[in-house]
Amino acid sequence: MKTLIDHLGQYAEYHRDRRNIATHFVGIPLIVLAVAVLLSRPGLEAFGLWLSPATLAALASVYFYFRLDLRYGLVMAALLGLSLWLGAVLAVQGTALWLGAGLGMFVVGWVIQFVGHYYEGRKPAFVDDLMGLIVGPLFVVAELGFLLGLRAEVERAVEERAGPTCIREKKATA
């Protein structure tokens, strides 16, 4: 299995422009929340919990994150737990509200992502490696931590592999 640095470093290679990273702070949470909402039907309540395909996807994701790093795993578990809660709240609403909220967040999230990749001048990481779909949310959490001065050793290792973040100017076409 790849290490935390392997996954974050590979993902970061596609995300060095600060504007692209900024769009990911909005786009990825919207997409994660949308998936939780859309996968929360069908579901059933058991032991005070809403069990659905979203629950299974979140549990598998949290297992992956914990295998990479305990601290990031804890943060991701908490964030996915919040997403599951909101997904369950929307899943028991009328179909129009559930589906409209889920699809709306999904589409808006991806539009924001592609705007960021326009600035980056590169395709999204998942195009070359589907693992980018599960690493993306972890990347956002890691980048937020880096902005707060946390996990400097991880930030250094990621930048050794991917290079520092910057703002790239689009080349004018003649």
Rank of each mutant, 00 (worst) to 15 (best):
L44T: 10
L44I: 10
L44E: 08
E45H: 10
E45S: 12
E45M: 13
A46M: 12
A46I: 13
A46F: 14
F47L: 13
G48W: 13
G48E: 10
G48T: 12
L49W: 14
L49A: 14
W50S: 06
L51C: 03
L51F: 12
S52I: 00
S52D: 03
S52T: 02
P53R: 03
P53D: 02
P53Y: 01
P53E: 02
A54D: 02
T55I: 11
L56H: 02
L56K: 00
L56S: 08
A57D: 00
A57W: 01
L59V: 15
L59A: 14
L59M: 11
A60F: 11
S61Q: 12
V62F: 09
V62H: 06
F64R: 03
F64Y: 15
Y65V: 04
F66Y: 15
R67W: 13
L68Y: 10
L68E: 13
L68Q: 14
L68R: 07
D69W: 04
D69C: 10
D69T: 01
D69F: 04
D69Y: 05
L70D: 02
L70R: 15
L70S: 05
R71H: 11
R71Y: 12
R71K: 13
R71E: 13
Y72C: 08
Y72E: 07
Y72H: 09
G73N: 08
L74F: 13
L74A: 14
V75H: 03
M76Q: 11
A77I: 11
A77E: 05
A78H: 06
A78N: 01
L79Y: 09
L79V: 09
L79H: 06
L80E: 08
G81T: 06
G81K: 07
G81E: 05
S83W: 02
L84M: 07
L84I: 08
W85V: 11
L86C: 05
